[in-house]
Amino acid sequence: MIFATTLMLMGAMTLMLARLLRGPELYDRVLAVNSFGTKTVLFLCVFSFLIGRPDGVDIALLYALMNFIGTIAILKFFRYRALDVALSRMPSRNTRKKAGAKS
């Protein structure tokens, strides 16, 4: 049954690659990459049980965090066209309120 789950995850990853290649918008591709990463995390967990080496779960843990950071980094890059934008310079709720009070 672990093997069947591995096959199902691989099928789902293939479908997600198809969406990645077809996706008409940039955001479809980002969504596909993010979802592919989630499936990779699950695949690493299941596969480490399949081959009987539970070290893969540690890699899955790291991959879950890196997938999230990668998605946020891609979105930030395409919004600001740069990665070195300071957090304090991004418009937040407080600064918007202050700007509204000034004007």
């Binding site: 199902m8 995850l9 099928g11 789902a12 990853m13 479908l15 997600m16 198809a18 969406r19 969504l31 596909a32 979802s35 499936k39 699950l42």
Partner: peptide
Amino acid sequence: FVLAGAIGVL
């Protein structure tokens, strides 16, 4: 559920 989600995305 993972397969259903992937089919839905496609």
